[in-house]
Design a protein around this nucleic acid. Structure first.
Lengths: 201, 201
DNA sequence: GTCTATACTCTGATAGAC
DNA sequence: GTCTATCAGAGTATAGAC
């Protein structure tokens, strides 16, 4: 559909996307239904399809920009900065994303688990290129002896795994911690300690 | 249904479970269809339902024992052994599971991402109890100065996150590594280095 | 035990009144 | 713009022949 023009259109458009994010991030594309999304949005199913051409179109809209949002913290890593501070900053930004946008994280996780049927190109081209570029920076820092020598790509994987875990497995994390405390401050402290030790040459 | 009695029954039973594992681990419970499972199994849909009462029954059968398989490597951690060796052994066993049983890992991931609708009790009771028990051991080791002081539960989370990442995000891992090399030997080396440094007091 | 045929429900999408 | 009504196809499950 064309861009929303009125305030009401813009609001409904956004309401639908938020509801769709809820449902798609929980059940994946195939497992989600327009009925569920309409329910959550508080709109009728035909009304949904007045704003979006199809179920696919809603999902595609959610994916658009998701990878960019997800990779922006890595893009910000500055080759001129202090290596440890840059990497710890990246970890912190990524953990903030997991805390503030857990549904987006789970949507992404669902898509990758399924083999990225609707993100193939973005993963194999954009993501791979960015990681390759940043791996060069990491290797330079290692060559200069400013951080410990490690496989640079697996180092990036470890940041992804450790931060996204708190969004994707949120249910399990909270069940195990059991005390109702917010896991994220603890996670922030733990991950800072972990990466500080790991990166020390 | 009752336990399979003949060799043919046992074989078909197993064929169906393997096919269902393929499909459920990729698409989640709701996203999977009996048609897909029947296709993969090479059986007709009614034949599936001769062996299992329902789609739910197949899924339930897969979940039965899954959590145990997943937690066995943690159970094996021996309080009498050398702390670093015990923890590195746990990491290795968990990474071996991710390599050898990636579908089981993704099935589990799907279930947790959805809020564990069919595993609530197992997670909140069994899993939580086991982690609490092992956290005591870790804390003892820390008190004795034999490993670095860290939040014991987040330490366990970090092992889960770092190992399961290689199964659940296998598609992304291979896309980024790009060279067609097996990621697991590299992961094994990387994770051993990581945890050795992290655990050193 | 396995198949074809089919009942019945759910799901994505459209038509048309207001 | 939003609703009710509805269609066509997919989905789970069952009946009954062989």
């Amino acid at each position: 559909m064309t861009r929303p023009r009125t305030r009401i259109q813009a609001r409904n458009h956004e309401t639908i996307l938020q509801a769709a994010l809820d449902v798609f991030s929980t059940h994946g594309f195939r497992g989600a239904t327009l009925d569920q999304i309409a329910d959550v949005a508080g709109l009728s199913k035909p009304n949904l399809l007045y704003y979006f051409a199809s179920k696919d179109a809603i999902y595609a809209q959610l994916l658009t920009g998701l990878l960019d949002t997800w990779l922006d913290p890595l893009r910000e890593m500055n080759p001129e900065g202090d290596p440890v501070a840059e990497l710890l900053g990246y970890v912190r930004r990524k953990l903030d994303l997991a805390r503030d946008y857990p549904r987006e994280s789970r949507l992404f996780a669902n898509e990758i688990i399924q083999g990225a049927p609707r993100m193939q190109a973005a993963i194999t081209v954009d993501l791979t290129a960015l990681v390759a570029e940043k791996a060069v920076i990491l290797t330079t820092w290692m060559d200069q002896g400013r951080i410990a020598r490690l496989h640079p790509v697996h180092l990036i994987f470890s940041i992804w795994a450790l931060t996204q875990h708190y969004a994707d497995f949120d249910f399990q994390v909270r069940a195990v911690l059991a005390d109702g405390a917010d896991p994220f401050p603890q996670a922030q402290t733990f991950l800072e300690t972990l990466f500080r030790k790991l990166l020390t040459p």
